[in-house]
């Protein structure tokens, strides 16, 4: 029952603040976390549109952490089966639209030392900078065309954006296949509102009923699925259910990108001064 009371209260609170920012926080990083399972009794009542939104909000709430660190292995599989590996270290300070992220590539040698600083804002698109040690230059990355692929991966820049929950409409989509890897899921359709520009017409999100973890996302352009994100190896890390492996498939290109999270930690002590342009230039 406490959970049932929690949703309206949270909804009211966010309204009071006047800012409905429930960021999908650099979405694939966000999607590595998901909430603990709901009581079964709640499931049958969550069939209205408002509740679909509450599910998303709750899923996000359960990923709350002051900070996060992991070492990522990024593998891009092209349509011919060729694999390209990259490794990075990821550090995030803060959450829910006010976070700062430093992402530093560690392999291969050609990209070692390249770093990115992402400063998320609750009310606008994030600011991003990139440091290239070979020319000792930082550059601002202007994400004007958000459908551009993120540095050769199958993620687009839009996939990585934090999303304002208010810019989307959510409905529970009825379907026979609301099961992913044997886990029962809510199937939620997210549609960008008219004011929101997006390369996608809609997205279908599978949220696991037992732990509120995201299990799958399919992104549509008109009626065609163009990208599919799959979450696997879901583990409880410091109380946060986290998918240790994410795989985004670009169905048009026939390629996919797998991100494996290693040495994942939450709420690690990180300093604010390490999330500045000067800091990424130093290291």
């Amino acid at each position: 029952m406490s959970k049932q009371r929690l949703w309206p209260r949270r909804h009211e609170n966010t309204k009071k603040n006047g800012v409905h920012v429930l960021p999908f926080h650099f979405i694939f990083f966000f999607f590595v976390c998901f909430a603990p399972s709901w009581p079964t009794g709640l499931q049958s009542s969550l069939i209205a549109a408002d509740n679909a939104r509450q599910i998303v909000e709750e899923a996000q709430k359960r990923t709350d952490a002051k900070s996060q660190r992991y070492e990522g292995v990024l593998q891009v599989f092209d349509s011919k089966g060729k694999i390209a590996d990259k490794r990075w270290t990821f550090e995030r300070l803060g959450s829910h639209g006010q976070s700062k992220v430093v992402l530093r590539f560690t392999a291969p040698a050609e990209v070692k030392g390249v770093a990115m600083l992402i400063v998320n804002h609750p009310d606008r698109a994030s600011d991003q900078w990139m440091w290239t040690p070979a020319i000792e230059r930082d550059r601002r990355i202007a994400l004007q065309d958000r459908s551009t692929r993120f540095f050769g991966t199958d993620f687009s820049f839009e996939d990585l954006e934090e999303r304002d929950v208010n810019q989307y409409d959510y409905t529970l989509a009825a379907g026979d296949d609301a099961t992913v890897d044997g886990a029962a899921c809510w199937k939620i359709q997210s549609t960008p509102k008219e004011s929101k520009s997006s390369q996608y017409t809609k997205s279908i999100v599978w949220v696991r009923k037992d732990d509120y973890a995201f299990a799958r996302i399919e992104n549509y352009v008109k009626d065609q699925v163009v990208r599919r994100m799959a979450y696997s190896d879901i583990q409880n890390v410091q109380g946060i259910w986290t998918a240790r492996q994410l795989e985004m498939a670009d169905l048009r290109r026939g390629s996919r990108t797998r991100l494996t999270l290693e040495k994942l930690e939450y709420n690690v002590p990180l300093k604010d001064e390490d999330f500045t342009l000067q800091a990424i230039r130093r290291q």
Binding site: K82, A84, K86, E110, V111, T132, P133, F151
Partner: peptide
């Protein structure tokens, strides 16, 4: 070219 290079501007950007 290598797939990681073909559509991956990162190496391209990282190496002047």
């Amino acid at each position: 070219g290598e797939d990681a290079v073909i559509d991956d501007p990162l190496v391209f950007l990282a190496q002047p």
